[in-house]
Simulated scan of single mutants.
Amino acid sequence: MNENHAFPTEQKEGVYQAIMQRRDIRSQFVDKPVSEEILDKLLRAAHHAPSVGFMQPWNFLVIKDPDTKEQVHKGFLQAHNESAEMFDDKKKKQYEGFKLEGIRESPVNLLITCNRTRTGPVVIGRTVQPEMDLYSTVCAVQNLWLAARAEGIGVGWVSIIHEVVLRKIFKLPESVVVIAYLCIGHVSHFPEMPELEKAGWLPRLNLDELVFYEEWGKTEK
């Protein structure tokens, strides 16, 4: 019996390449439609994320209508202006110089939600940590994001928008929680490093300082 369950070397490298080269895309979208075949593959990848109690709490709302995108963009601008006021003068100026969404430029927008009542009130694995269904849906987002990178498709997560705005635009039921609003499309290029890292907004942390052993704060193996 073959006890080596690892992927072949080339396939392993592809997985790590998708992880390391994944980027939050904002200003690199190009005017080219995403084929239904690729979109279906991305949604299937998301749908195969791990989920607590196998409840599969996600839904995927595909948005292509320019008028709907415009409504969402207005909601972004409102939250964006509010957010700018939270920074000191130096950071505010830098913040206002960033492009933080591609809502209108991307051919596909995708709203990913979590239906917290899908399989009833008692769910295996959620009895003690009820938030696990939310985390499961975030795993679906990451699955889609990595699959998109492998397909050469860019994804940008728009988090600067109030949930109440999205709930109103898309007529969401009370049992559904907004997890992610994504912009999806072909790109001119993928940046070599995350844009906020390149701009010096914050540095990449040293992994060695983030890994502990046996107890909090113990960095020696």
Rank of each mutant, 00 (worst) to 15 (best):
V141K: 13
L166R: 01
E82S: 11
G152D: 06
R167D: 03
S136F: 09
L110D: 02
H162I: 05
N115Q: 03
Q142I: 15
V158S: 01
G185E: 05
E174P: 03
K171D: 12
Q71A: 00
E85G: 07
A147T: 08
E82Y: 12
Q129K: 14
L146C: 08
S136V: 06
N143E: 07
L111G: 04
K93R: 15
T127F: 07
T117N: 10
Q129C: 12
R149Y: 11
G97T: 10
G156S: 08
E151R: 09
A147K: 10
V187A: 05
K91R: 15
T117S: 05
F98N: 10
G97P: 08
V178N: 04
G185W: 11
E192I: 12
G185C: 06
A180L: 11
F98S: 09
G125T: 09
R126E: 14
T127Y: 10
R126S: 15
T127L: 13
Q78K: 13
K99T: 14
V165I: 12
A140F: 07
G152I: 07
G125E: 08
V138K: 14
F76L: 02
G125Q: 10
N143T: 06
K91Y: 12
S83H: 11
L110P: 03
A84I: 09
R118S: 02
F87W: 13
N115Y: 03
K168D: 11
T119R: 13
V141P: 10
E105H: 05
R104K: 14
E151N: 05
I153P: 01
G152Q: 06
T117H: 09
G97Y: 10
G97W: 10
Y181C: 03
V187S: 03
F190N: 05
E105T: 06
Y181L: 12
A140L: 06
Y95C: 09
A140T: 10
P107I: 00
S188Q: 08
T113P: 04
A148H: 06
L182V: 10
H73I: 01
E101H: 06
G156H: 13
L166G: 01
D88E: 13
V122N: 10
W157R: 03
L146W: 13
H80P: 01
L111S: 02
E101D: 10
L110M: 05
E163V: 01
L166A: 01
D89K: 15
V122L: 11
G156V: 10
K171E: 09
T119E: 12
M86T: 15
F76Y: 13
M86W: 14
T137N: 05
K171V: 07
P107E: 00
L134N: 09
S106E: 00
F170S: 01
T119N: 13
N109T: 02
H80N: 14
L77N: 02
V123I: 13
L110A: 02
K93W: 09
N143C: 08
K168C: 00
T119G: 09
E192D: 15
V108Q: 00
S175P: 00
L166S: 01
H80V: 05
V158R: 02
D133T: 03
I153F: 04
V158P: 02
I112H: 06
L166F: 00
K99S: 10
E85L: 15
M86D: 11
I112D: 06
C139S: 15
V141Y: 15
